[in-house]
Design a protein around this nucleic acid. Structure first.
Ligand code: MN
Ligand code: MN
Ligand code: MN
Ligand code: MN
Lengths: 223, 223
DNA sequence: AAATAAAATTAGGTTTGACTAATTTTATTT
DNA sequence: AAATAAAATTAGTCAAACCTAATTTTATTT
């Protein structure tokens, strides 16, 4: 049995695959508009690419069900995500970048492909399980740990948790976290939920209380 | 005084700059045909790009004198070369690639740019002076050691040398060298030059004699 | 100096992946 | 159910970076 010849996708095709993969992690159907927003492209352009990727059998598009990755598309998307997250670990751990600087560089590095590059990098980094934002790194076979999914905002008042991952990886959010001294592994106690607007009063690493928004709490994933 | 906004060149522009830089190291004028051959493109396409790069003031083209990099073009080309050679060191030393596998991957990595990436990589690698093929690595300011230029073929019979660099970095040549147990630092004694075709009878690391072609000798640079 | 060959250039075309503007389809309000 | 709004799609355009084929310029032979 012959394997498809894969992995000679264009940069754009790869970015679309990865975006569709990411949108598929959330709930709801994947529409041209959603993809367009996510990539900062025009929906008309997305429709073109949907056609192209459908012809290549990497996705299936049904008006009702939206866009879905095929088995092949999923396999390929996961490998791009693997490369992205491995490079993020490299940039942070080996080159000393801060966690708010690595995403954009990894966005380019992820497209460099070579039979063994990801696997060698993986080995060099000591086979990390999670990237610097707490996202699981797919193994060469596509398997990976289940992503964290419980948010700080969903916790009940009084309980304590440990930060496992961040959902939003924008500089704005990550720099705000840095200012608050919050990183992966930080212990947070939820003191009180303000019922008016769901603001959260928290204690960071046992320090004095701080108030953060619901949006903030929605973007912190806990163990 | 304002600096030009640089470093947002396309992949193609960067590859042209680097090729022109490389051709400038050799002697003779740089013609559209030479660039075309070097890049595997059609001369007509090269003429297009010569126009584009001229407009951007990265090169100057004179029918008589051929293509020349401007001060700005040279500066930028050298930084691309810097990235290329640093990544080659990384791939060999950190990821364990063989020296005949690294060029093609570096050919892609060199285009990834970020204010501090090259400098951080440089530091991480311990500020290497030479890449795995013996080519000097430009510093952030553009300065670099003088490239090796004396060839094995130019040596006089009887003398001994140490391999400092290879001129040809094709897999074919590098694998041949590996088979002969020749690498950077290998000691070679030139036993005899066959006057008929300039073949070279050499002794590698003091071992028994081997005969190699003039072309071979032209592509080995010595200390 | 002609003739010929080689190199450079022009003209026109293709593909990829964007775009805008117009239209059609689908969903939401009233 | 009609009206309206939103989303999806089509049609046509554009720039980048390549190409081929034809032409012009330059270099080399005879
Ligand atoms: Mn990307
Ligand atoms: Mn990440
Ligand atoms: Mn390159
Ligand atoms: Mn090299």
């Amino acid at each position: 049995m012959y394997n498809r010849i894969v992995d000679m996708y264009t940069l754009s095709e790869e970015n679309y695959l990865k975006t569709i993969y990411r949108l598929a992690q959330a709930d709801g159907k994947i529409t041209p508009t959603a993809i367009a927003e996510s990539l900062g492209n025009n929906p008309a352009s997305v429709v073109d690419m949907i056609r192209k990727l459908s012809e290549k059998q990497l996705i299936e598009y049904d008006k009702k069900k939206g866009v879905k990755l095929t088995a092949q598309g999923l396999k390929d998307a996961v490998l791009i995500v693997r490369r992205h997250r491995l490079w993020e670990v490299f940039l942070l751990e080996k080159l000393g970048y801060h966690w708010d600087e690595i995403h954009d560089i990894a966005e380019e590095l992820e497209h460099i492909n070579n039979d063994t590059l990801a696997d060698r990098l993986d080995k060099f980094l000591g086979f990390p399980e999670y990237d610097p934002h707490g996202d699981p790194i797919p193994k060469a076979n596509g398997k990976m740990a289940k992503p964290y999914s419980v948010t700080l905002a969903a916790m009940k008042a009084g309980s304590t948790c440990e930060v496992a991952a961040v959902r939003d990886t924008s500089s704005a959010f990550l720099q705000y976290l840095a200012k608050l001294n919050i990183g992966i592994g930080t212990k947070i106690q939820l003191i009180e939920k303000i019922s008016f607007d769901n603001s959260l009063v928290i204690s960071i690493n046992g320090k004095e209380h701080t108030t953060v928004s619901q949006k903030f709490g929605d973007n912190i994933l806990i163990e």
